[in-house]
Write a protein that binds this DNA or RNA. Structure first.
Lengths: 332, 332
DNA sequence: TTGTACGCGTTATCAT
DNA sequence: ATGATAACGCGTACAA
């Protein structure tokens, strides 16, 4: 890698002037600037970001803690995050993270990122504390859980409102008893969705019985197994809502295997609306999570937090709630 | 962030000794080491990776150039790459990359990564040259195209062999005329798959007619549109193989809309075997690409290239070919 | 066994 | 308008 010194020598100026030019300072004489830029071009010089970071204390990198990239929903949000980050001149790196790996988080992050995005995560208490007093801006995409309220600012959709519309839709289709499939982690974003579903049910005067809440483990295969089991044991609900689309697809899978017709025998709906959901048999009704908006907004907000941090401002945005779109297909 | 100096002061030693301890040098007296480690613990000291990189010229970061993270296949490979990279102590960052953004690639990478993984990509000529003489190890997951042979080492599955088995399978099911849907980019990995399909057809003495090769654009929706159009115009082939599963799913989608039964009216098979393919109607026959193996192997090989580079060795592994598994489902 | 001193490539301050 | 020069935090050769 060609360094600033070589450029300075070539252009016949001091190293400082090279930096002035690179950083677009106005105080450089036009002719000097031309000479420098020419040397830069000839030598193919690019400022070393590592050295720059050492001095500026900013890496222009953003860390994303992903829950499970095998879920197309998360991959989709990540995709849009990256696109927006690039526009802001940031690079994204990511780690698959689990709470029990709590201790290593600090090592991973130490000085590597200017900010942190949580994608489908709640953070361990120690890590949260560490980040907080490290002054590292943290933003969560998807609200972790009710008890974590105000932990970190977050972006999410209005699940309660969305689920109310879904419940009304299901009732109009004649389904009065409705179950919900969650992932067994109350303090995860999907646990939060369950709490919203409960609230929506309450507001719609729908009784949600505890026996109708299933733990589908968060993934397709585990959800299929869980519903298969439930079908064998006999279920009372006429419709089931998956906490994510993978689990809803798993429910379809179980119905297919068990010979239960959808939506006749059991209506199935999901949450997120991934591409797969338009291709299942039957296609899945779902609440669409606007991945593009959420991803872009997350990066925008985090960046403003980062810059606020730089200016010493602690006035961080606290949350943003997007609207869920009910996408009705043949599974209901 | 607490710096080395503070630790040194606290432990009553020099900064050098702190470094010796952090890097596990043997020459430190046991008692001193204890004192230092205690100070490290008390202060929560972590070496600043930026400063370290400036000195060592290594970032312990690997860049991944992704084609389209909206394809669950790529996200899946990336997932496994990250897992393996973490085991090696590397962090992965990624960029969605297109050839026409050629000029910015150098900026993105300059000094940020120790190595580069291409996921579903061919590189522009200038970028390739730049990386080559920057001495940055590059490894491609999925072979870009025949004409790029020996450009960079790569990992891929044995498409020709896989397609031969698929062709035999389709013939056994009674389909004698077979079409192929590609993405319109001959020098992309999917273009390479097409060339393998041609070769497989030749070896199996199957005639692949040019009119039976469709450009499905690489994605589900575009593939659906393309096949819909073809169906309207009248097709002669009895089976179609998608260059990836998204396009194969798009073909199913088109058949469903057009009222063509699968596999009766048209048999459909894919390449990759993503999760979605097990849930489509009917479920898709596909060639399974072992994402876990490929991702892990890619990181292993790249790391050995990085270390080889460090030792001045230029003996890089040139390629690795994995086996494709034919997964037969109801679409054929 | 430990300490001193230098260099990595920047940015930024202060002279000139 | 430009040039010296001091940090930034670390690794390490060399001196002690």
């Amino acid at each position: 890698m060609v360094s600033r010194k070589e450029v300075a020598d070539r252009a016949g100026v001091s190293e400082a002037v090279v930096s002035y030019v690179m950083n677009n300072r106005k105080l450089v004489k036009e002719e000097t600037r031309r000479k420098v830029l020419e040397a830069v071009r000839e030598l193919g010089y690019r400022p070393n970001p590592t050295a720059r970071s050492l001095k500026t204390k900013r890496t222009r990198q953003i860390a994303v803690l992903v829950h499970f990239l095998g879920n197309p929903f998360e991959a989709g949000v990540l995709l849009h995050m990256e696109s927006r980050a690039k526009a802001h001149g940031y690079t994204l790196f990511f780690h698959t993270y689990r709470k029990d790996g709590d201790d290593v988080l600090e090592d991973l992050l130490a000085g590597r990122a200017d900010g942190l995005l949580l994608l489908g995560h709640s953070l361990g208490a120690e890590s949260a504390a560490y980040l907080r007093d490290a002054g590292l801006p943290v933003l969560s995409v998807m609200r972790p859980a009710a008890r974590d309220e105000n932990e970190f600012p977050y972006i999410d959709i209005d699940w309660t409102d969305g689920y109310r519309r879904l419940i009304r839709h299901l009732r109009e289709a004649g389904h009065e008893r409705i179950g919900y499939m969650t992932n067994g982690h109350p303090d995860s974003p999907i646990g939060y969705r369950l709490s919203c579903f409960r609230e929506a049910a309450r507001l719609e005067a729908l009784e949600l019985r505890e026996e109708d809440v299933l733990d589908g483990g968060g993934r397709l295969e585990s959800a299929s197994r869980r519903l298969t089991e439930a079908l064998r044991g006999g279920i009372r609900f006429e419709a089931v809502v998956g906490g994510n689309d993978l689990m809803a697809a798993g429910c379809l899978d179980a119905c297919r295997r068990a010979g239960v017709s959808v939506p006749g025998g059991l209506a199935v709906a999901g949450s997120e609306d991934i591409l797969m959901s338009s291709q299942t048999a039957p296609p899945l009704t779902s609440l669409r999570y606007p991945r593009d908006e959420a991803g872009a907004l997350a990066v925008d907000l985090l960046q403003s937090m980062i810059e606020g941090e730089a200016r010493g401002s602690r006035l961080h945005p606290s949350m943003a709630v997007l609207e869920a779109e009910l996408v009705v297909r043949e599974s209901t």
